[in-house]
Amino acid sequence: MFRRSFVSALVGAGTLAAIRTPALAADHKPVVGLVMKSLANEFFKDMQEGAVQHAKERGDFTLIPVGIQSETDIDGQIAAVENLVTRHVDAIVIAPADSRALLPPIARAIKSGIKVINIDVAFDPASMKKRGVDIAFVGPDNRDGARLSADVLAAKLGRGGKVVILEGNPGAENGVQRRLGFMDSINANGLKLLDSRTAHWETEEANSVFANMLTAHPDIQGVMAANDSMALGVVKAIDASGRSGKIQVVSFDNIPAIRPLLENGKVLATVDQFGAQLAAMGVDNALKEVQGQTLTGWIKTPVKLIKGRDAG
């Protein structure tokens, strides 16, 4: 503890006065650090822009957004957290690149008095317990969202409808949850799962993988894609096979590129988890903690089913 503050004092020696002075002033605005994942991803880019916009509108706090190089740049994120601790921010809102590896620096931040809110992917509960912290998670229920989307397909096909799943990256928590949600719907509605494969969230891979699945299972009636990018590739494969309208597609995310396909009926439904507002909702909750509230557990954010032209 002492060592840590000593190091931060050393690091910040030159600018310490500059940082401390406004903190002591009466009109001090709380400073919130927002630690994002890779901004190369449209989803996180929108999320960060949403938070920046929110900071402008509220005007009663200062936002420091930081992104990392790639989705898996864990070291980069740890450095970003340590940097925010050094800068004595009041709160940190974090979309962790890894649900375990980010806990040690985050636990240190909490022990130095910084309020922390977890968004996007939840920290591992067992690891939190081990570190003696209980961080509130603000985020959507991916599993329930995926189930909503899949239910539209189930209603269209009826019991016994034959479907396949295109999964996200193996091991990615949101991908795992969405697959579970699809399975919930398949089991509840008596659908028949013919095959389930990953296309790593990627359009081109989804196009190839689905075309090959279709050869192996010509009787496919419906597709559940874990994100819209993969659904785009699936729709192209269905078009190329000349079976437009005979195979139904549902997906997840509601990116702009999927909207024309919802309108022309090539995609039945998708799910919006309001990614652009997710970080802003995290910030709001972080400010509640700064004002003295203690938040724990899962604060669910809305997911909304977006139906296309041909959804029942």
Binding site: A40, N41, E42, E202, T203, E204, N207, S229, L232, G233, K236, A257
Partner: peptide
Amino acid sequence: VYVTRLSIANPILGV
């Protein structure tokens, strides 16, 4: 060829 096949162009393709 990629763009004509998939009708999209995004900056994270081709990884």
